[in-house]
């Protein structure tokens, strides 16, 4: 059992939990993920690692309530426990020799981006971050990024915080203003990452994206998480989750994400009825 040490509700749809997980905490690196499971017949859900504390043996996850299982997780309180919490899975984020990096986060994508930029800044890399959200409450971790990022740009769809507009608008502005970055790391909804790449590619600003496709085991066994990168099939769980954004077939990723749309809908309906 993996005990929840701390729980914080970040907004109506996003929850943070710090979980006792010694194996994961001891070895995890920025960019890796865990798979959690709750209940006798619970499904296995991959969640990115938002932070970790090697001394406390704890790992922080931040997740969005999007379906049956995450709704169940949201009901857990401090002192409750997950049945399974396995990791760290995936490859650590692939860092290059960079001096200046632009991070771009959309919604809950701030969570996996945070440990990556934190690590880079510890390595002496200058980081700027653009955080996007539907409205003010969906912009998360801004204060935490502010601790080590030189510039924190906030973009909201409705203008309730920061500037109104999409993250791509800010990227374009920065590029047009002649800002130079060695690399961009974009994590958020697939459609956001697709358009970030469409913005950074013409400027030849190399961009890493983090994929979170449907998977079961997270160790290379099911092959459900296959993605096409540079014309080759890769397994996001063992080859990723971070990939060269210029090479990812986002349209295929988006299509594959809809595999169980019907079932998810039916499941939510049943859950609502119970």
């Amino acid at each position: 059992m993996y005990k929840i040490l701390k729980k914080e509700i970040m907004n109506e749809a996003v929850i943070m939990m710090e979980v006792d997980a010694p194996y994961v905490a001891a070895r995890c690196e920025a960019g890796q993920f865990v798979i959690v499971r709750l209940g006798e017949d619970g499904e296995r859900i991959p969640l990115t690692i938002a932070d970790f504390d090697r001394e406390k043996n704890s790992v922080t996850i931040i997740f969005q309530v999007v379906g049956y299982s995450t709704e169940q997780y949201a009901k857990l309180e401090e002192g409750d426990a997950f049945d399974d919490f396995v990791g760290p899975l995936g490859q650590p984020a692939p860092f290059g020799k960079w001096n200046r990096v632009l991070g771009v986060a959309g919604g809950v994508g701030s969570a996996p981006l945070y440990p990556q930029l934190k690590k880079l800044s510890e390595m002496g890399v200058e980081c700027d971050v653009i955080i996007g959200g539907r409205s003010a409450e969906f912009v998360i971790l801004a204060e935490k990024f502010a601790k080590f990022c030189k510039n924190v740009y906030i973009m909201t769809d409705d203008g309730t915080l920061g500037e109104q507009g999409l993250v791509t608008k800010k990227i374009q502005e920065l590029l047009d203003a002649g800002e130079k970055y060695d690399h961009c790391i974009a994590i958020g909804p697939l459609v956001m990452m697709k358009f970030v790449v469409a913005t950074t590619k013409p400027a030849d600003l190399h961009t890493t994206v983090s994929l979170n496709p449907i998977m079961i085991d997270g160790t290379g066994m099911c092959g459900g998480c296959r993605v096409t990168v540079g014309g080759e099939t890769k397994f996001a769980c063992v080859d990723g989750p971070d990939f060269d954004g210029f090479l990812v077939d986002f349209d295929e990723c988006m299509k594959r994400q809809t595999f169980y749309k019907e079932e998810e809908h039916a499941c939510r309906m049943r859950n609502a009825a119970n």
Partner: peptide, 25 residues
């Protein structure tokens, strides 16, 4: 993959159909 199909049904108990959250098509 057969691994995924069978894992969904066996390990994740997809054979119980609506009773479990792991779907199989």
């Amino acid at each position: 993959s057969a691994n995924e199909f069978l894992t969904r049904v066996n390990l994740m108990k997809g054979y119980k159909k609506d009773a479990v959250p792991t779907p199989v098509k």
